[in-house]
C-alpha cells in the first residue's frame, strides 16, 4: 500500500494541500486538499506506513478508539484508491 506518485505538502489559503510532483515539476492542477486527519494519513503513507501503523497513529493523536480509527483510515484509503492515488 503506497502512494502512486510523489507529492509535496504545502499550505494554500489556510488548507494543507498535496501537490503532485513529477521530477522537478509541481503540478498545481492536481492539488489534493487535506484536512487534519487526512494530512496525518497522507504523511504516514509518504513514509511507507502500514494500515496498522496509520490506525495506531490516529488513536494516539486524536484519542480515537481502535474501531473509529480503523473506520476513518479505511474510508480515507478507499477514497485515495478510488481517485487512483494509491497502489494496492
Amino acid at each position: 500500500m503506497k502512494l502512486k506518485n510523489n507529492y509535496v505538502l504545502k499550505q494554500i489559503a489556510n488548507e494543507t494541500v498535496a501537490i503532485y510532483l513529477y521530477k522537478d515539476t509541481a503540478d498545481l492542477r492536481r492539488a489534493v486538499s487535506l484536512n487534519g486527519s487526512a494530512k496525518l494519513i497522507f504523511e504516514a503513507l509518504q513514509k511507507g506506513a502500514t494500515k496498522e501503523e496509520i490506525v495506531l497513529t490516529l488513536t494516539q493523536v486524536y484519542s480515537l478508539s481502535e474501531e473509529e480509527a480503523k473506520g476513518d483510515a479505511q474510508a480515507f484509503l478507499q477514497l485515495l484508491y478510488n481517485n487512483n492515488l494509491l497502489d494496492g
Binding site: 492542477r29 492539488a31 489534493v32
Partner: peptide, 8 residues
C-alpha cells in the same frame, strides 16, 4: 476527506 480542488 481529500478533494481535488482548483484554487485561484
Amino acid at each position: 476527506m481529500p478533494i481535488q480542488k482548483q484554487y485561484s
